[in-house]
């Protein structure tokens, strides 16, 4: 909190961030494709995706791990990509929203989101979908209450929760049967 306050303010004596660092080579495996970037170590995975590679499907809603809009899958596990530096993910398998569909064929979770109208503005949606896919991978959510709890890291300001849960329940059912 204090750091955010100061960072946005620009009025303090001590320098908070480290001085600019030189770019280094970072190799990211995104959606099965190798991307080699020359980026400074202070670039977050989220910014690497959005600003340096052009994968803008992953969204920035807070940049502080508070909203879930930036959720991607790393080795199948959902993480907030704003909370990790790209350089820390060198060599790991990263899946973004762009990697869930195959050409025109949508991932079942994407399809279920459309069928259940599980979004309005669509800005939280890639994060919700990646998070929901990660949730099913975890195998922990066994009922609606679990889903609600375990999806609460993804804020939807449009308030599409009812439909998001319906979509997840449908896909979970399909996976299990």
């Amino acid at each position: 909190m204090l750091d955010f306050f100061k960072q946005a303010s620009g009025s303090h004596e001590t320098t908070l961030a480290p001085p600019p660092a030189e770019p280094a080579e970072v190799r990211l495996n995104i959606n099965g494709q190798q991307h080699t970037l020359q980026i400074a170590p202070w670039v977050s995975l989220l910014d690497a995706l959005r600003e340096y590679i052009g994968f803008t499907g992953t969204k920035k809603g807070c940049d502080h791990g508070q909203c879930g809009a930036c959720t991607v899958l790393v080795d199948g596990v959902r993480i907030n990509s704003c909370m990790t530096l790209a350089i820390m993910r060198d060599g790991q398998e990263i899946t973004t929203i762009e990697g869930l569909s195959h050409g025109k064929e949508l991932h079942p979770m994407q399809k279920a989101f459309i069928d259940h109208d599980a979004f309005q503005c669509g800005y939280c949606t890639p994060g919700q979908i990646c998070s929901a896919v990660g949730l099913i991978n975890e195998g922990k959510a066994n009922n609606l209450e679990d889903i609600k709890e375990l999806m609460s890291g993804n804020i939807c300001r449009c308030g599409a929760y009812t439909n998001i849960n319906a979509a997840i329940i449908q896909v979970k059912g399909e996976v299990q049967s």
Binding site: T96, I97, L100, I114, G122, T125, P126, I129
Partner: peptide, 17 residues
């Protein structure tokens, strides 16, 4: 269903930034 649904669930809908 929303006509822009596919764009939104695939991350292809582009926002200002």
């Amino acid at each position: 269903s929303r006509v822009d649904g596919a764009l939104k669930v695939t991350g292809t809908a582009k926002y200002a930034a």
